[in-house]
Amino acid sequence: MPGFLKVLFRNLLEGPSTDPFPLVPETFTPDRLRGKVVIDENLCMGCGICSYYCVAGAINITRREDSHTITVWHNACCRCAACRQFCPVHAISLIPDWHSAHPEEEKYNVIEQKTIKYEPCSVCGKMMRPVPEAILKKLYVNNDDVDLAHVRSLCPSCRQLEDARRSAGLPAAETKKAVE
């Protein structure tokens, strides 16, 4: 018994080991806590690998002619971070925000939703998702002569042609604006 009396006495001296949350503004929250999924709309390309690997079926991507919308239902998400692991452009991440309490009637509205608008290709006019600047910089890291703003305005097939022209030393294709 003396063994445990020592523990009791120490506990009396040290006081409670819990935080009086919500009386204190913040409690123990490590940086790597998997709290809530957030999407960076500047990076998301809408490839759909996140929803393919989402075991909870919490991610949906709706594709339209001129945009795509990515939705994550926080109440369905099981925070396994598979989406973060597989996202090729690191557009999806988990933040340490664990404040998820909400009234029952809001249960279907607790979502993370981002709509990414498409732009027309400057050569053929086809609607396309412009490549995010951060990714372009990585793709063309050794090509200082390439005009990134111009490449960004091209759809994948026009970009291929453009690259082929550049390799062959031909002038760039005329953009729609220049034609007008």
């Binding site: 123990f28 490590p30 790597r32 806590l33 099981c78 396994c80 971070a81 692991q85």
Partner: peptide, 24 residues
């Protein structure tokens, strides 16, 4: 529990493993 939460981000389901290695 604090170690698990700090290192892996959850108190119970660590989500540490994935096929081919570890997630983080």
């Amino acid at each position: 529990q604090d170690v698990k939460e700090t290192v892996y981000g959850n108190r119970m389901n660590l989500a540490a493993n994935c096929i081919g290695g570890v997630k983080c």
